Simulated scan of single mutants.
Amino acid sequence: MNASPPDEDATELLEAVVPTALAGRRFDQVLAEIFPDFSRSRLSEWIKSGDALLDGRRVKPRDPVRGGEPVTLAVALAVETRAEPEEIPLAVLHEDDEVLVIDKPAGLVVHPGAGNPRGTLVNALLHRDPKLAELPRAGLVHRLDKDTSGVMVVARTLRAHAALVEQLSGREVHRQYVAVVMGPMVAGGTVDAPIGRHPTDRVRMAVVGNGRPAITHYRVRERFRAHTLVECRLETGRTHQIRVHMAHVRHPIVGDPLYARLSLPKGATPELAEMLRGFRRQALHAERLEFEHPASGETVRCQAPIPADMLALLDLLRADTSAAKP
């Protein structure tokens, strides 16, 4: 689906009347009540820029309302994401006017950067729907590491963007991952350990006392001779969270270039040894995503199948486990 390019000068004028029940409230609070589709920070910016008027005049965010005044809001649909559209195939799991849910392949960078100006998910999204340029980060409200595969949701409207950001910050989005970790786990559990930048290696994250709160719940899905397939559920969404937390409990993710070292189990089959040596990415997949639809309020459930490289790894782990049985 290709839409026409966004008009950088496009403006939508929204009008409303302040309910008398809100008399005495601050203008920014009232605006958030009247126009819940937009984030409070964005509404505050529009008040300060004069795009949100109370009774035809500019006021301060803290100014009180009397009730009954007309409110006008000029929503400028400016280009917020500047990147070149590129025709990159996307596996779409769900699509409607408000949201797009995709299955991101391993190896695809999410955002353009100094080292990756092209060939990213943002470039692909702008080709599929050029109007996403009107939204922050082309509608992306969360991210996956380059070498993590799986489900991602993209907002297609300002209303959807604000609603999804609020759900994520309120921990109302269900995010389920699967990972192949080193070592046989006895049982599942919860890792509640703050995450921040590593004190000496700025590329890595680490469990640190002054980090941001981070909680990962995990359970054993399948146990092998020297590895485990775990299911992880995020309660928070910190950078590298599952990778750091699994390494913290001494079960790093297979293939993780930052938090794991190659370890071949004693007596591994030649095929498994070759697979482990050649597995160049963290064996981590965002399998399932559930959220409340921004318009209908219904629950959207999307699941991405485990990718071929992880399936091949799992098959060899099963064969190795069977070969080791007496």
Rank of each mutant, 00 (worst) to 15 (best):
G267S: 06
E235Q: 12
P213D: 09
L168F: 13
A124R: 07
G255S: 04
E45N: 05
E271G: 08
T228K: 05
E45T: 07
P213S: 12
V181E: 09
D9T: 15
A187V: 07
L108Y: 11
R25K: 15
S169T: 12
P85R: 04
V153N: 06
L73R: 09
T299V: 09
T20M: 13
G188R: 01
K60M: 10
K104H: 08
R40K: 15
G67I: 00
L264H: 05
P307Q: 04
D103N: 12
V71G: 01
V99P: 00
R58F: 03
D256H: 01
D309Q: 09
P70L: 14
S4E: 11
M182C: 12
N123C: 12
R175K: 15
A52N: 07
R82G: 06
A323K: 07
H142W: 09
L13A: 13
R261E: 13
L311R: 15
T299R: 15
L126N: 08
E290L: 11
L125Q: 02
H174Y: 13
A273D: 07
P307R: 07
D63M: 09
A268D: 07
L229M: 07
N123I: 14
V249R: 15
R212H: 14
A83V: 07
E69V: 09
R204I: 01
T299Q: 09
D51P: 00
V203N: 11
R58N: 11
D28Q: 03
H111M: 04
H127R: 13
S149F: 11
E222D: 07
D145R: 06
R171E: 08
A187N: 05
H293E: 00
T120G: 10
V17K: 13
R143S: 10
T200L: 14
N2L: 14
A133P: 04
V141G: 09
R156T: 05
L135P: 00
R42F: 15
L168E: 02
K60T: 13
H111F: 01
R143K: 13
E274V: 04
A155N: 01
V230F: 01
E69Q: 13
L272D: 05
L316H: 10
E298C: 03
R62D: 14
A323W: 01
G188N: 03
P105Y: 07
R26L: 02
